[in-house]
Amino acid sequence: MTLKNFLFFLPIFISLLFISCDGGIEPATEPLGAAGFSGKVTFNGSWPIGVKRTHLVVFKNEIKTADDFFIPNLSFVSDSIPYNSKEYFYKSIESPYSAIFKLVPGSYSYLVVAQSYTPLITFERKDWFVVGVYCEGGDQNRIKKLLLEPGKITEGVDIIVNFRNPPPQPPGAN
């Protein structure tokens, strides 16, 4: 091996160096955190006795197994809905948990109103039961996806809760 050989390899080395001229990671172009939704929850019938918590919650993916009921799949939690409410108007950006659960543009598979008899929030599937679901044309078997667009608040995301006719429960309930 001689200097001549080195001179052969030098252009390869210099080429590698100049690849570095590509800037690498660039600033994100999409504004973040501006997506959201709003709407109304209507309650029909009598509230179950002893319910301690009622929340509107959004899951990124469907609840196919009890294991899908976990925080990394949870995208939004509303403030606790007062007991015996008949109507509840909400805006996602006003949720006290918006700093923890950040909504970003995209599709969300499961938006429900869930109730619990526990005074504190738990993440055990067995502690919760679904009383209303975001669905197509009032048919609770046809779950509707929530679509959030960049920089927009999707309005009219309404849910009707009929305590006399609860929706099918996702897996993992007692």
């Binding site: 990671i25 973040l32 955190g33 990394p72 949870l74 659960f101 950040k102």
Partner: peptide, 12 residues
């Protein structure tokens, strides 16, 4: 999503 504790954290 849904956690997004580190926004754009998957940029590499």
């Amino acid at each position: 999503p849904p956690l997004v504790l580190i926004p754009d954290g998957d940029k590499r």
